[in-house]
Design a protein around this nucleic acid. Structure first.
Lengths: 212, 212
DNA sequence: ATTTACTTGTTGGCAACAAGCAACTTATAC
DNA sequence: GTATAAGTTGCTTGTTGCCAACAAGTAAAT
C-alpha cells in the first residue's frame, strides 16, 4: 500500500488513536501532578495534549473514565515492577523486596506514584466513579502480600502463629500511609523511612514467635 | 435585661450564630459521610441545616473555609481524646493507649473519624485550600508521638538506639494507612487490626535493641 | 463512500460574589 | 423606664463564570 502524499505524516487510524491516547494520558499526569484533580479539567487535559477540549470526553466517556483508565495503567506498571523485584522469593525476603521496589518507584517515577496514590485517596469519595478500579488494586495488593507471608510460613521462614491476612493488611496499610505522608510532605526522609520499615519488617517476621 | 415577647423565641445574636453554625457543621458531617465531598455542596449543606443555600458562603467565605473549620473542630476533639487516654504515660504505654483511643474513636464517633480523614486525604490535592489545616494537625500528631518515644527513652523504657523522629513518622503513617483502608473498606476487621498493631508496637519498642 | 478521529455548540450544576431584606441591638427622646 | 429611631449583624436571593457532559457537526483515514 502506497505511503503517499498527505499534508504531513499520514498515519493509520490505529496509530492516530494510540498517539492521542498517549498524549492525553501524559497531559493528565502532568496536570494532576502539579495542580491536583481540581486543576486537571477535561479542557485543560485536551488542550495541553495538543487537541481540543472535547477529545477526552469523546475518548473516555467521562472524567471518571479517564481517571480509572489512567489508574489502571499506572497500577499495571507498578505491579509488574513489584513482581520483577520479588521474583520467586517468599516470606520476609519478598516483603523486603517490595519495600525496595516501592522506594525505587518513588525515586524513578515519582509522577506515576503521585498519580496512583492521588487517585487512590480521591476514591474515598463515594462520588468517585473509579472507586472500583482502586478497590481491585487494593485487593490484589493485599492478596499478594498475604501469599508471600503464607508461603514463608510453609517453608518455615515465618512463624505459623502470625495471622497472614491481618499481617498483610497491616503491612499494606503502613505502605499506603507512608506514601500518603510523602505526598503531603515532599520533604519526608523517604529513604530512611523505608530503611526503618525494612528493619521493622525483618524484626517482626523473623522472630521465632509474634509478640504475645 | 427583660426577656421579652417577640413572635417566637427571641434569641441573642450570639446564640443565633452559634445555633446556625452548629447546624451547618452537623449538616456538613452528615452529607460528607454519606455522599462524600462531591455530595456536600454548599446549597445542600445550607438547606439540610434548615437555612438557605447561601448561608455557608456568607459565614465561612468559601467551601474550603467551611471544611477547614470543620476539620479543626474534629481534630481538636480527637486530640483531647488522645491526651486524656495517654495521660502522663510515656513510651510504649503511651503508644498503646493512642491505639486504644483510635479504636475507641472509630467505634464511638465513626462519623467524625470519617470526616477527619476524608478531609485529610482530600487535602492531597494542591487545589484544596484547607491544606494548611491538615498539615498542622499532622505536625502536631507526629510531634506528640515523638515526645512519648523520647520520654520513654529518657526513663529507660525504650532503647536509645531508636530514632524517635523516624519511628514517630512511621507509627503515624501506619495509623493513617489503617484508617484509610477502613474508610475504603468498612468491613475491615478493625478490632483485630488494632490488636495486632498493639502487639507489634509492643514488640518493636520493648526489645532491648531495634533490629539491625 | 463510509467509517473513524476529532471539534464546536450547548445545557445544567456548582462555587462565589453582590445586593438586598429581616432580625436583633444600641442610642436618643420622652 | 419605655418607645422609637438609627445602626449593626444574620440571612436570602439574583447573578456570573467555570466545569462536565452531551449532541451535532467537520475533517481525516479506509
Amino acid at each position: 500500500m502506497p505511503e503517499l502524499p498527505s499534508p504531513r505524516t499520514r498515519r493509520t487510524q490505529e496509530a492516530r488513536t494510540a498517539l492521542s491516547d498517549r498524549r492525553l494520558l501524559e497531559a493528565a499526569v502532568v496536570l494532576l501532578c502539579d495542580g491536583g484533580l481540581s486543576a486537571a479539567t477535561l479542557a485543560a487535559i485536551g488542550e495541553r495534549a495538543g487537541y481540543s477540549r472535547g477529545l477526552v470526553t469523546h475518548r473516555f466517556g467521562t472524567k471518571a473514565g479517564l481517571l480509572g483508565h489512567l489508574h489502571d495503567q499506572v497500577v499495571a506498571d507498578w505491579i509488574a515492577r513489584v513482581q520483577q523485584a520479588v521474583g520467586d522469593s517468599v516470606g520476609v525476603v519478598a516483603l523486603l523486596r517490595v519495600i525496595d521496589a516501592l522506594h525505587g518507584f518513588i525515586e524513578e517515577a515519582p509522577d506515576e506514584m503521585r498519580v496512583m496514590y492521588q487517585l487512590r485517596y480521591a476514591s474515598i469519595d463515594p462520588g468517585a466513579e473509579f472507586r472500583a478500579n482502586v478497590a481491585n488494586a487494593h485487593k490484589a495488593q493485599r492478596r499478594d502480600v498475604q501469599r508471600w507471608i503464607e508461603r514463608g510460613q510453609q517453608v518455615g521462614a515465618i512463624d505459623e502463629t502470625h495471622d497472614a491476612v491481618l499481617a498483610a493488611e497491616l503491612f499494606c496499610a503502613t505502605v499506603d500511609g507512608l506514601i500518603y505522608r510523602w505526598l503531603v510532605n515532599p520533604g519526608l526522609p523517604v529513604r530512611e523511612l523505608h530503611a526503618l520499615l525494612k528493619r521493622q519488617t525483618l524484626d517482626l517476621f523473623s522472630r521465632s514467635s509474634p509478640a504475645c
